[in-house]
Computed example of a mutant assay.
Amino acid sequence: MKLKLLFFLFPLFISAQKNQLVELRKNIKDKSHTAQSLTLLDRREDKFIGIISHRKDPYEVKFEKDDLEKLFSDWFIEYNKERGNNEYFLILEYLKVKDVPTERSVMGHLDMQAATFLKKNNQFYFLKKNRISKDYQQKDHAYITRAIAASISAELSNIIKDSYDTEELNIPISEVDMENYEKVISEQLPIYSLRAFTDGVYRDYKSFAEQKPDKELMVKKNKEGVIKGVKRSDDYDNLHKEVFAVVDNGIAYKKTPVNFIEIDKDNNGFFIVASEEELFPQNNTMTIAGAVSFGIVGGIIGAVIDGASSKARKQNATYSRVGIDRLTGEYILPENFRKSKE
Rank of each mutant, 00 (worst) to 15 (best):
K2L: 12
L9T: 14
L9A: 14
P11K: 00
I14L: 15
N19P: 06
L21E: 15
E23F: 12
R25A: 12
K26E: 15
L38I: 05
R43M: 15
R43L: 14
R44Y: 04
I51P: 08
S53V: 02
K56V: 13
P58E: 07
P58L: 07
K62A: 07
L68K: 00
E69F: 03
E69C: 04
F72L: 00
D74E: 10
Y79W: 12
K81Y: 06
R83V: 03
G84I: 00
N86G: 03
Y88V: 00
L90V: 03
L92C: 01
L92V: 03
K96E: 12
V97M: 01
P101V: 00
P101H: 05
S105M: 05
G108F: 15
D111F: 12
A114K: 09
Q123A: 14
Q123H: 14
F126R: 09
N130H: 14
R131G: 09
R131I: 10
Q138D: 15
K139V: 08
H141A: 01
Y143V: 09
I144N: 07
T145S: 09
S151I: 04
I152W: 04
I152Q: 07
S153M: 04
I159V: 04
S163Y: 00
E168Q: 11
L169A: 02
N170K: 13
P172K: 06
S174A: 03
S174F: 02
M178S: 11
N180I: 06
K183H: 10
V184L: 01
I185L: 11
Q188R: 10
L189F: 09
P190G: 06
R195Q: 14
Y202W: 08
Y205Q: 00
Y205K: 01
S207H: 13
A209Q: 07
E210V: 04
K215N: 13
K215P: 07
L217S: 11
K220G: 10
G225E: 10
V226L: 11
V226N: 13
V226P: 05
K228N: 11
G229Y: 10
Y236P: 05
D237C: 08
H240Y: 12
H240F: 15
F244V: 05
V246I: 01
P257G: 00
E262F: 08
K265S: 06
N268Q: 13
G269A: 02
E278A: 09
M286S: 08
I288V: 13
A291Q: 15
V292Q: 09
V292N: 06
G295A: 05
I296L: 15
G298Q: 10
G302S: 05
A303W: 13
D306V: 02
G307H: 08
A308E: 03
S309P: 02
S309W: 06
K311D: 12
S320F: 13
I324M: 04
Y331I: 05
Y331P: 08
L333C: 04
E335L: 07
K339G: 06
K339C: 06
K341G: 06
